[in-house]
Amino acid sequence: MKPAPFKYHDPKTLSELVELMSNLEDAKILAGGQSLMPMMNMRYVTPEDVIDINGVNELDFIKLENDHLTIGSMTRQKDILSNQKIFDKAPIFREALNHVGHIQTRSRGTIGGSLCHLDPSAEIPALASLYDASLTVVNREGSREIHIDEWVLAYMMPSISDEEVLTSISIPVWKNPHGYAFIEFARRHGDFAVCGAGTLVEIDANDIISKVAIVVAGVDVKPLRLSTLETDLIGKKATKDTLEYACSSAKKIEAISDVYFSTQYRQRLAGTLIKRSLEVAIERARIINNDG
């Protein structure tokens, strides 16, 4: 349970970091270490070089400009949780991040680490999908932007090459006041969820759904946006029937199965969680409408 020998590097700037990345053959980036360290301790991963980016301060920031929230990849989960700007503009982050691991892992874990590790049931990639986020990666030659849908290539496989570094994620926040909810089911609070569902919704004065985004995690190898359901829901009144409709259509999602949970189980869970998240989100949207 000790990592195999490696050479340790601790660049202090992004340019030093990309330089290292392009020169080293078998290097791993160490961010918060909440996924890589266990894998190295168990020697599932035995890189020759470890590049610790905890000292690259320029990757640790939270910015809000023109309704775009940009978060540096080295920003820790605990800092996202306690950030007032994020809470004001995108309150679902706080609700979702409270489910990420435990206090001891959120003190170290980073947003970029979660986005690169890409556990299928993880909350942060699900939020990225919910918001149609785009990610910025750089290498020595320059940078490119990539939409979250294209970022996830396959099971735990992000679209990033050995020479590239994820530097930030940009999230277009919803301008108008809206309801939100992130609900998940796990065997124990903070453990990897079996399934999670996140919803953002705007309703008008007549209780009609005018804008909605729904994501579900843990049913596929990547977070799944329910775009067909979203389109169907627009223009519908926020009633019990509408919730039931969302539930039954979510149960038809093609879901993965593994030794722990079958496809049918995940589909039912997805249906129920989506219904509940929509219900809570609508309720919160109503409260905001009444207050405003």
């Binding site: 270490g33 909440q34 360290m37 266990p38 301790n41 610790d52 001891q104 892992t105 003190s107 170290r108």
Partner: peptide, 19 residues
């Protein structure tokens, strides 16, 4: 293995000594 580093509880098996 939890210890407190700069005021935050962390898992000391997932942090390198050099860090």
């Amino acid at each position: 293995c939890t210890v407190v580093v700069d005021g935050e509880p962390i898992r000391s098996c997932l942090m390198l000594g050099v860090q």
